[in-house]
Write a protein that binds this DNA or RNA. Structure first.
Ligand code: SF4
Ligand code: SF4
Lengths: 137, 137
DNA sequence: TCTATATTCTACTCAGAGGTAGAAATAAGA
DNA sequence: TCTTATTTCTACCTCTGAGTAGAATATAGA
């Protein structure tokens, strides 16, 4: 029960870039600062840029940057790029089809928690996550 | 962000057996009733029995059964048998070391949800999950 | 134009989850 | 005792997430 490692990487990068808007960071800089495997990060960044979440500049002095308004970038978009959103809403017992009427005994207690996390990724934007002052990275 | 498929299987089996205490079910019966791959289920049941969660009888008319008091079997034990509990408490950014002091911007909102799920699996027993009446399976 | 620093593309490797196959061991009951 | 239904053991296979390697492409700036 956790996010995929790649999703963690993606959130790490986006939160970091959000805290350093208007600056470009190369894959190598991000790799060193955020402890993410260099080559792996390259492919991840490509996905994020294809999804329009970061702007990319090639060549010397190039790198990645966020240009969108931070309050328009939701965690759900980041999660979607990496692991997709299909699992949110999944039955805790793994059954494919099951209406909410006449639910099994675990349904209610599980759905509450699941929806709380779903709500979190759909409601939280990078603007909510800016750490003004006390930056750690 | 979801349980492993095998964990779902395990919970399915245990909830089913809890609803049918004092009856033995063979792997084949469970396989057909709960739609879990037969051979795969065999290995899963072995783990559950090694952990003492089910009693097993070999040979003809054999099968699996719960003998413990249902209120003594916590979801956390079931999860532990399959995927372990190490991920509960994991940092949402995947960093290995990070104290709760001077937390990053995501820490609080994430910890709340994570602890809610952790609490669920540590506090819920099979007795809480018995569906008296309206059984679906 | 050339060079250094970037991203991008392609093709691997590795580990673990999920699943399959078949034979061996066990025990109830005819 | 023999048969049959069962678990158990061992060995594979497949798929996906994670990570590595190297060459190709792009571009700022000397
Ligand atoms: S009622 Fe139970 S089986 Fe059906 S979707 Fe909800 S948790 Fe899954
Ligand atoms: S403060 Fe942030 S980085 Fe540190 S453990 Fe909490 S979520 Fe992870």
């Amino acid at each position: 029960m956790r996010f995929q490692k790649t999703t963690e990487y993606a959130i790490r990068v986006m939160v970091f870039l959000a805290d350093h808007m208007d600056e470009r960071y190369s894959a190598n800089q991000l790799h060193q600062t955020l402890q993410i495997p260099y080559k792996y990060l390259g492919r991840l960044m490509q996905k994020l840029s294809n999804a329009g979440l970061v702007e990319v500049t090639q060549g010397k002095q190039g790198g990645y940057r966020i240009i969108q308004d931070l309050s328009n970038i939701y965690l759900s978009e980041i999660v979607n790029v990496v692991e997709g959103l299909a699992d949110y809403g999944r039955c805790v017992l793994g059954f494919p089809q099951c209406s909410d009427e006449n639910p099994c005994s675990l349904h209610k207690i599980w759905k509450e928690r699941q929806e709380s996390i779903t709500k979190m990724i759909y409601d939280t934007t990078l603007a909510d996550l800016q750490s003004n002052g006390s930056k750690k990275y």
